[in-house]
Design a protein around this nucleic acid. Structure first.
Length: 170
DNA sequence: TCCATGATTGTTGCT
DNA sequence: AGCAACAATCATGGA
């Protein structure tokens, strides 16, 4: 039973559950676009190779949640709907539930670092010229061994070997 | 025609 | 040490 929610759930209701505080700073759009001319990609003259930030546990959960949400709410066509619904549910979930998502997010972050390593090298390689790196702190690149993706992805799945227990906090 | 926005939270990066 | 912007999504609106 969907109870009150339904499709019109998107409006009014945030205050009821939680004021979500402030969106931090008046919400800062999705992607900063210095130039309207510059699109997300198209020329992408900036850095096409630049790895994007790894999705946080919330986003990992959202990906799955989106499918579920859309499935139960095929009528909903607002991204904000999923965002709000997902956000509320996310807060409802206990850390134990979020654990698997965080684990995946953590792994994603590890890959991100790896990509950054390769990216940094590439940048150093192209921008090597006379620019003289004042701070080569981040550019401590050693060898150029990039492109070696270790695809060792095992585990995952919902198999928790740890039989720890579900801690229901509170 | 086509890009930007909206909404969520988390995480990363810069100052 | 803290703040600011950005990560996905997708229909809709404004230019």
């Amino acid at each position: 039973m969907k109870s009150g929610k339904g499709k019109g759930a998107v409006k009014n209701s945030k205050e009821s559950l939680k004021p979500v505080d402030d969106r931090r700073v008046g919400k800062r759009k999705a992607a900063a676009k210095p130039d309207k001319s510059n699109k997300r990609q198209a020329k992408a003259k900036k850095d096409p190779n630049k790895p994007k930030r790894p999705p946080s546990a919330f986003f990992v959960f959202l990906e799955e949640f989106r499918a579920t949400f859309k499935k139960e709410n095929p009528n909903v066509k607002a991204v904000s709907a999923v965002g709000k619904a997902g956000g509320q549910k996310w807060k409802s979930m206990s850390e134990a539930e979020k654990a698997p998502y965080e684990a995946k997010a953590a792994k994603r972050k590890t890959e991100y670092e790896k990509l950054m390593n390769a990216y940094n090298k590439k940048q150093a390689s192209t921008a090597e010229d006379g620019g003289d790196e004042s701070d080569r702190s981040k550019s401590e690149i050693n060898d150029e061994d990039e492109e070696e993706a270790h695809q060792e992805e095992e585990e995952d799945d919902d198999d928790e070997e740890d039989d720890d227990d579900e801690e229901d906090d509170d």
